[in-house]
Design a protein around this nucleic acid. Sequence first.
DNA 1: GATGAATGAGCGTTCATTCAT
DNA 2: TATGAATGAACGCTCATTCAT
Lengths: 201, 201, 201, 201
Amino acid sequence: MVSIGSSMMDNHVVDQKIMDAFANLAGSYGYKGTTTRKIAQQAGVNESTIFRHFSGKQGILKALIERYQDEINKAELSFHTTGNVEMDIRHAISIYQYFIEQHKSIFLIALRESSQFPELGQAIQRLLLIQKEMLLKLFRNLIEQGHLSAQNNLEMEISNLVLMNFSQAVLKLAYPNTSIVISDQDYLDKNIQNFVSNLKK
Amino acid sequence: MVSIGSSMMDNHVVDQKIMDAFANLAGSYGYKGTTTRKIAQQAGVNESTIFRHFSGKQGILKALIERYQDEINKAELSFHTTGNVEMDIRHAISIYQYFIEQHKSIFLIALRESSQFPELGQAIQRLLLIQKEMLLKLFRNLIEQGHLSAQNNLEMEISNLVLMNFSQAVLKLAYPNTSIVISDQDYLDKNIQNFVSNLKK
Amino acid sequence: MVSIGSSMMDNHVVDQKIMDAFANLAGSYGYKGTTTRKIAQQAGVNESTIFRHFSGKQGILKALIERYQDEINKAELSFHTTGNVEMDIRHAISIYQYFIEQHKSIFLIALRESSQFPELGQAIQRLLLIQKEMLLKLFRNLIEQGHLSAQNNLEMEISNLVLMNFSQAVLKLAYPNTSIVISDQDYLDKNIQNFVSNLKK
Amino acid sequence: MVSIGSSMMDNHVVDQKIMDAFANLAGSYGYKGTTTRKIAQQAGVNESTIFRHFSGKQGILKALIERYQDEINKAELSFHTTGNVEMDIRHAISIYQYFIEQHKSIFLIALRESSQFPELGQAIQRLLLIQKEMLLKLFRNLIEQGHLSAQNNLEMEISNLVLMNFSQAVLKLAYPNTSIVISDQDYLDKNIQNFVSNLKK
DNA sequence: GATGAATGAGCGTTCATTCAT
DNA sequence: TATGAATGAACGCTCATTCAT
């Protein structure tokens, strides 16, 4: 039986601590406002350790982006249809609500810093495209199986749904106390019914 | 006819040059990435002039926010209905598309820095609320005048429309080359027809 | 009868206002801590006016020093003996106590900035020397007139008296609440009697 | 035997170099005239090193004051009487002459900047009080042991002695070439004899 | 490999002074 | 002559990163 060397193990743990500290801080204070000193402090490591584990501040972000992309891919896989129209749509959307909630720091970073770091913009766009494709696939399934009638504007309706979800996420994270934003739960409850009934007309 | 004293005029001009330089730079590099040296260079003034005209870097942003809020108010007033349903909605939305296009820098700044500067978050929210109220008033007019039948979910439909417009704006400005975003023109063409036809059903 | 041109008059007034503002501020905040802006503000003049009336910040100090030296000279003249030993000494010393009290700002400036501005050191020293000479003359008078017997150590006793007066002034101005310093009145009352009785032994 | 870790040693050495550079410069140019760039240059360290070792420019002064106060305390302990009246007084005074000579920079700083930094005023006052108490104790000893007869005005005589010493120190440091100031040696020689003979009368 | 000391570039800001009207 | 706008040098300080042990 092989025992994994503890140092390699520790390395991973330290990497994660640094990345998480960075994500939390940058989510609150922005990339520039997140100093290596604060990261080290919050991660509980020496400041120079950051530079051996990553190539520098940018390196942490790069690693964070990669981890994010991996997790976007994983999220994609976790969806399966049931045939219940409302439940399936609800499920499809809440997967992304939950995903963004779980990754709110990096989502906020991506929103803010994408002009400096194009990969961040690409990650956001990928998140939207995957959501759109998933919904498209779902609706086509539902139509194929007769749960829904064919639509003229299906792609546009879905694009709009994705856009609305995006706004909902952005506004909730960026301005948590605003009046125009309602809870994700309410958002789902009120909209999906309406959306489906529109499609059914 | 009174000729305006040139010195007072110059003062305004320099203020504007500094504010515009700041807005452009901060739109690209963020608040922290926009140094007073860069601002001075881009505005073509001495760095210390900035500090005589504004109380500091924050002061420029404050002034920019105030100017933005004033212009939000002006935009609100510039709308009048005609009775042609599609044209009126189109007009109402394009006013905000145009407004954001004209103020893209400050809109981007607001999107990114609102956690550091709460006024920015408030400005964004106000822009959304005004848009929503304007559309509500418009639709109520159209219904009253018989151009449109009464709606169960009017407020929600309008909220969604505002959210979609917001996403459209955010994505267009933040990721201009993305595939999910279409031109404002196309967005209007395709959506309004659909939206109206939904309402008419 | 000649009427003095008001502009020349004003010039003098402005000069004085600037010098006084400078003296007050520098007495509190030191030379470097006294900015031309603060001076202008306190004097109620435009900042650039300072540079036309004086050659710059140093120029104000130079003028202040000259005024101070003139006033030291005037103070010297105002003393006359009466023959009453204690009263005369008391009078001689209180002239300087009063003088320093009246010029406390410039005295403090001189104390602090003399390494940067040698004239200030010279002014302080002159104040001490004049005081010493005045006391020497007084004592020689008193001895000559038989009010006091000849002394071995007259010059040293007087030097010491001057030094004590100087300490008293420095400590009173620099640390007004200190316990080692007593009021000028008490200082006079207690010391002179003692000093004279020592001389009389 | 334990060898002290060199890094801890180095740290102290750098601290001292910075503090000494600061003291020298501030003794000559005042607190404001002593820039962190000059300090770094004179101490032979990088400017930012100053900020890692101290919390800022004020921090250096604070540390200097603490070191000064510690050394005042040490000086206090180093005095013991012998019974020889003149020698003991001479010794008591020269301890302070020497102390001030050794700490002339911080003494000058204290004299000049005490209005901005109250601790400096307190340090000066403490130096005076300790000196006074030491002399009081000494004289009471001498009287008790019959070397000196009881005095009416002992406390005042001693206060005066302390004030004279203070002036002597201030003038010597601030205006080294002035005529009213004599060497510490001469000052001692001439005064103590006189002072003692006054007391003995 | 891990630490903590050092570094230099750059930051926002203030200042005394000059310029232009 | 008087004003207020402009200037450039310098300031205290922070930062990401490198060096030395």
